[in-house]
Design a binder for these strands. Structure first.
Lengths: 341, 341
DNA sequence: CGCGACTTTCGAAGCGCTTCGACGATGGCG
DNA sequence: CGCCATCGTCGAAGCGCTTCGAAAGTCGCG
């Protein structure tokens, strides 16, 4: 590989001139600069990454940490990792994937060895050890997800409470007031994985505010059957259903409702909210309030890049307002069936 | 952050002694070594990554490159990226994610700047530009997937031809000889994404060898309905079905068959082969010949680590023999139904 | 008692780059 | 015509580490 030395020789200048010509940090006579650029081009020169890192004290690398719980869907997290990576590239950063079993280990390692200039934290628990770590080591860190105590942290996430409210309000506006929620497995809730809790609590409190009884079911082993039965038990005339759950559960909800003689959307209007998957390919696609990985990740990375590049203090918590995608699974009560079969 | 200087001072030795004590590349008197280790521990010393990289000419980083086609399932690839990352850690490597739109760009960049010591190539097309790149730059590279021309390349993958044969043989052994294949969308096949082709060709040729007529269907927009209808059209007394397709298609196959009055496994035995997803949560789980990301990735990373660490020449192509998981979707023809409902 | 062989540690060079201070050349102005 | 500011370039220091060669110390054996 060509070094800056080679370029300097080829262009007949000193290495500092090459450096400045390429970085633009000092003005270089245009004719000289062109000669340098030419030489670099000819030699296929690219600065040696480690040398540049060492001298500039910058790696141009962001790390991404994602723990590997057994009850979570890795592929969903990996989509976030990918979106972080894409966003990072637009800022000139590469992305290092940390998937250690011990969540904090990789974070500590990457910070202590200056491997990465900053870190994006995925799949945040309410009491995530990485929150304390971030507070104690003042290493540029952005959380995608919101731990219980956010003091001193920079967090980004969909506004799940608002999403829950939006789901309820939309159903209510369609005349659907007997609403149920299919949430996540209790196993997940118990780990206090943060957003299922926030969504559920937002759901419960908004329903309470509106004076609506709103039962909540926690599916077991990603099956919707019992969860739906449970909700119908609590609310026999259920006419609205909110899904903040896994793709396996959501994809089988229509069938589960059918077993009880209810159709979507005629009998029960359905909204999937705060979910990463698409319902487009479901037999009956659902209206969706998406948890859009691209949006969350690009906001998070923008913030991280600003912290690292511009050394600015960051906003504490950024909540991303929910958006609503209509797919026809919510119709006014008693509306005529317009969708052909 | 503590530097090697600090550790040297703290332990009362020179920095070279610290370096050797930590790396073990020269013998150090045990008492001295302990003092050094102690000091390092106390100071929470971790070598500065870039400095180590520069001096050792090794980054201890592997890159992973995955292109982003629109018709492929990102989350499936990301699982591979994750498995590569986990495997890499066991060899002391971290993993850099390259997801550039221009597939070759990241590869070129990471090679030219010595960012990574080697690279794992995912989602390989038959005529992948990265194959030529790898041939031309002799940068340690391992492909997970098999391009058309493998000369000079190191490739690892499931033996899809063998998987296809195993699927057919298993069905035949169960007395199922009127077999169909649901493959991938034509869009994918046209891009010559390599394994769908290899599976299909292995399927077709083995069926021909056995003298079995074996229709093949290519689903459109990830729906199984038409594909199943097509197969039943070509083979009205279909009694065996092989699925080498997407999760969306596979998960709706049972329903599609039911529409035609066929039940699984009584009327039609089903095997999912060469797939990354699990059918465990399907209404009727399918026997599976898995494409196990963990296996492929750990084999690939082992090879890459040996190339980089031990500087050994690598085997050209490693085909991983298929394994078979029984889930009850294949029963002998006319067998009594034993599975309770 | 002296010499060679080994053990243990140290000093210094150098990896390829960035960046600071400085130096010569150029030009405007009094 | 001479002085100072400005432009363009260069040399050298240094980032934190690895690694080579060699120095100092230790031991055994003739």
């Amino acid at each position: 590989m060509a070094t800056i030395q080679d370029v300097a020789r080829e262009a007949g200048v000193s290495i500092s001139t090459v450096s400045y010509a390429l970085s633009g940090k000092r003005s270089i006579k245009p004719s000289t600069r062109d000669r340098v650029l030419d030489a670099a081009q000819r030699l296929g020169y690219l600065p040696h990454a480690s040398a540049r890192m060492l001298a500039a004290n910058r790696s141009q690398i962001f790390a991404v940490t994602a723990p590997l719980h057994n009850d979570t869907d890795h592929s969903a997290h990996m989509v976030f990792a990918m979106e972080v990576t894409k966003a990072a590239r637009t800022h000139g950063y590469d992305t290092l994937l940390l998937v250690d079993d011990d969540v904090s280990e990789g974070m500590r390692r990457s910070a202590a060895s200056s491997l990465a200039d900053g870190i994006v934290v995925l799949d945040v628990d309410a009491h995530d050890p990485r929150a304390d770590l971030a507070r104690s080591n003042n290493y540029p860190t952005v959380f995608i997800g919101i731990p219980a105590d956010t003091t001193g942290l920079v967090c980004v996430d969909l506004d799940f409470e608002a999403a829950a409210r939006l789901a309820i309000d939309t159903l209510v506006a369609a005349g659907r007031t007997r609403i149920g929620l299919v949430s996540h497995p209790l196993e997940t809730m118990r780990r206090e994985s943060n957003f299922p809790l926030r969504f559920r609590d937002g759901f419960a409190s908004h329903a309470a505010t509106l004076g609506i009884a709103a039962p909540i079911a926690y599916p077991v082993e990603h099956r919707s059957h019992e969860a739906v039965a449970q909700l119908l038990d609590a609310q026999p005339d259920l006419d609205g259903l909110v899904l903040n759950t896994s793709v396996d559960v959501a994809s089988s909800v229509t069938a589960a409702l059918a077993e009880h003689g209810r159709s979507v959307p005629q009998d029960v209007a359905v909204i999937a909210a705060g979910v990463t998957f698409s319902t487009e390919r479901f037999a009956v696609p659902f209206d969706t309030i998406p948890l859009d990985a691209r949006v969350s990740c690009s906001v998070a990375v923008d913030i991280l890049a600003r912290i690292v590049d511009d050394n600015v203090a960051a906003p504490e918590t950024t909540l991303i307002p929910p958006t609503y995608i209509t797919r026809g699974s919510v119709t006014p009560t008693g509306a005529a069936v317009t969708t052909g079969t």
